[in-house]
């Protein structure tokens, strides 16, 4: 599969990019339906499916009971029998409720059946803090799913990625978990009007640089770009890489960058300990150890649940300042 990245034509918000992807995909393929809690009449609490019920009707845009296991099962059974479902788990935090369906059923059915099942299932969910929604509505749990063979995991960083990755996810013949970010929903960017795909498993060098590599995930991409500007004032030329897909992970692009810059840091909103940054850092040291001039850094949330109170939450979620500070710390350690 080749990447088809069309030319940008107009500004669109992240949320509109997601709903446009849904609508265009559903026009293209009658086997696609969308099911989840309040995705039809309510257009989803985040607005990602607004307008779809009117265009496609209740047969294809389906409000489900609040039953996360049932929702994933609905998608799995339908995918295994030839449809191409998109199912929505409103908040990523709710995935604990349907973890067996995702981890033991969706992820493993193909392998357990000796390859005979094709499961074109997209599981869409929303992650991230920043809205004072506290510990059960703010988490970034992507590492859980990257650990499970059989799943693909994408985390779009902006509107362009949100549309292109959704298209690729839905067209993929495997279960793909699309983790969008709540705070990013208002982000605006150039987004092509037509359907385009961003190839899964291919990282994107968002900002080329020569002195330092920041691998930034999801919402940390715009934050890291800001950090790169702050560091440019110090005379540092930072490269920012957006993996876009976390499983499968494009190690090659990251390693190529580190061989050039000799220093790297991974930034994600998820809790640092056991986060996907640990895996990425390990891959960098395995494949580029001789090129490294400093230990690989990691920026992530501290080891606590996400707090409610705005000042505490602000302290909790990494931002550009913290990314820049970590880069400076790593550089300062070098002699």
């Amino acid at each position: 599969m080749t990447t088809v990245e069309a030319k940008p034509t107009r500004q669109l918000s992240y949320v509109a990019a997601v709903s446009e992807a849904f609508a265009q995909l559903m026009r293209e393929d009658p086997d696609i339906f969308l099911a989840g809690e309040d995705v039809a009449l309510g257009g989803s609490v985040f607005g990602v499916s607004r307008g779809l019920l009117k265009e496609f009707g209740p047969e294809r845009v389906i409000d489900t009971p609040i039953s996360e296991s049932g929702i994933i099962g609905l998608g799995l059974g339908a995918a295994a029998t030839g449809l191409r479902p998109i199912v929505d788990i409103m908040f990523m935090d709710f995935m604990g409720v349907c973890m067996d369906e995702i981890v033991n059923q969706v992820a493993k059915m193909k392998y357990m059946f000796g390859g005979k099942a094709k499961l074109p299932l997209t599981i869409h969910t929303m992650a991230g803090g920043g809205g004072s929604m506290a510990a059960q509505h703010s988490q970034s749990l992507e590492a859980w799913f990257c650990h499970v063979p059989g799943l693909k995991v994408v985390m779009p960083s902006g509107p362009y990625e949100a549309k292109g990755l959704m298209v690729a996810a839905v067209r993929d013949d495997n279960p793909v978990i699309v983790i969008n970010n709540k705070v990013s929903l208002r982000m605006q960017a150039d987004v092509p009007e037509e359907l385009y795909e961003i190839e899964l498993g291919r990282a994107h060098v968002v900002r080329p640089g020569t002195n330092f590599t920041i691998v930034a995930i999801g919402r940390m991409v715009p934050e890291s770009l800001k950090a790169a500007e702050m560091l440019a004032a110090d005379g540092l030329d930072v490269e920012v890489i957006d993996p876009r897909t976390l499983q499968p992970f494009d190690t090659a692009t990251v390693v190529e960058s580190v061989r050039k810059t000799h220093r790297a840091l991974v930034a994600h909103e998820a809790v640092r300990f056991g986060g996907i940054g640990a895996e990425i850092a390990a891959q960098i040291q395995e494949e580029a150890f001789d090129y490294l001039d400093a230990p690989v850094g990691r920026v992530g949330a501290p080891f606590s649940p996400v707090p409610f109170s705005p000042p505490l939450e602000k302290e909790y979620i990494p931002d550009a300042g913290r990314v820049a500070a970590e880069v400076r710390r790593i550089l300062g350690k070098q002699v």
Partner: peptide
Amino acid sequence: SDLDLGMLGANGIVGAGPPIAIGAAFSNQY
């Protein structure tokens, strides 16, 4: 399992069948 016969798998998880069954049933209805 035998998908050609519509047998969507024995399952090692007790209670795993019902959610999958409603998905297949939805597919029939759709």
